[in-house]
Amino acid sequence: MQFAAIADIHGNHPALAAVLADIRAQGISDIVDLGDCFSGPLGAGKTADLLIPFALPTVRGNHDRYLIEQKPEAMHASDKVAHEQLLPHHLDWLRSLPTKLVYQEEAYLCHATPGDDNLYWLESVAPEGHVFLKPQEEIEALAEGIDFPLILCGHTHIPRAVRLSHGRLIVNPGSVGCPAYNDEKPYPHKVETGHPMASYAILEKSASGWTPYFRNVPYDHMAMSTLAKANGRPDWAAALATGRMPPF
């Protein structure tokens, strides 16, 4: 059994197109999507038109939720830019998404954690802003009651795999469309991959269990960096150009 996992596209339609092409080139037809599909100062409408017809098993992310729960005037900048591009049927598709699902009776899917779409599962943030691998017991606690061999989450944009008890494996495939970002909670911090490529993962089951293969795909990231700058987001422009964030 083999399939691909994508997450955190954030309205980056050329990155999504490049990843879908790379998945096809690997001979893989089955794909799951871990959410945060459209929000960002890029091409939300074009991303929706590309993604939705694939009818992928998809869970709703926190930014997907913001787009359907908040009024435009209350939205943060990235969500507001995306909302202005989305048509009613795009928003209806977001409303139809579950917060979690099980794929092929093998993989549990959620965006961030099972109970909170805005909580880091595999990472913690120190008061001084350092992002580090969360202690094993804290990761295990969030996985309590999830009795599937493979668990998939996104949200932090950091490709990572952690082995859990009883052989379970939890995997974050990384971000298709946003290789770095700043956040203020729980403390001001940066998440940076250090490269501008689009990330995703291939999951393969063998006699010994599930193995993730992380892939990074080049695309015209500078075009998206230029678009982000034109839309008033120099922070996104830096992230898309380099995979790093400018100083706070």
Rank of each mutant, 00 (worst) to 15 (best):
K205Y: 01
P218D: 04
F214W: 09
Y219P: 01
L227R: 15
H221Q: 09
I202C: 11
Y213C: 13
P218W: 05
M222W: 02
D220C: 08
H221P: 02
N216L: 14
P212N: 03
M224Y: 10
A228P: 00
P218Y: 02
E204F: 09
H221K: 01
M224I: 05
T226S: 14
G209V: 01
L203S: 11
A207S: 09
E204C: 14
P212S: 05
S225G: 11
A201C: 03
L227Y: 03
F214E: 10
S208G: 02
A228N: 03
V217S: 13
A228Y: 01
N216A: 13
A201L: 06
L227N: 06
M222G: 00
V217T: 12
W210R: 02
K205N: 08
S199D: 14
V217D: 09
S208L: 13
L203W: 15
A201R: 05
M222N: 09
M224N: 06
L227H: 02
M222C: 05
I202H: 11
T211M: 12
S208D: 14
H221N: 14
V217Q: 08
I202W: 10
S199A: 15
L203Q: 07
S225M: 03
M222H: 13
H221I: 01
N216P: 05
P212A: 07
T226C: 12
A201P: 08
M224G: 01
A228K: 03
H221A: 10
A223N: 02
T211S: 13
S225K: 09
M224S: 04
D220N: 14
A201Q: 02
A201K: 10
S225L: 10
G209E: 04
Y213M: 12
L227K: 09
S208A: 14
L203A: 12
S225N: 05
Y200L: 13
G209S: 00
E204K: 11
Y200A: 11
A228E: 14
R215P: 10
D220G: 02
A207Y: 07
A223F: 08
A207Q: 03
I202R: 12
A201N: 00
L203I: 09
G209P: 01
I202V: 15
R215D: 03
V217L: 08
I202P: 12
P212D: 06
G209M: 01
D220Y: 04
D220I: 06
P212W: 04
P212Q: 05
R215E: 07
L227W: 04
W210E: 07
S208K: 13
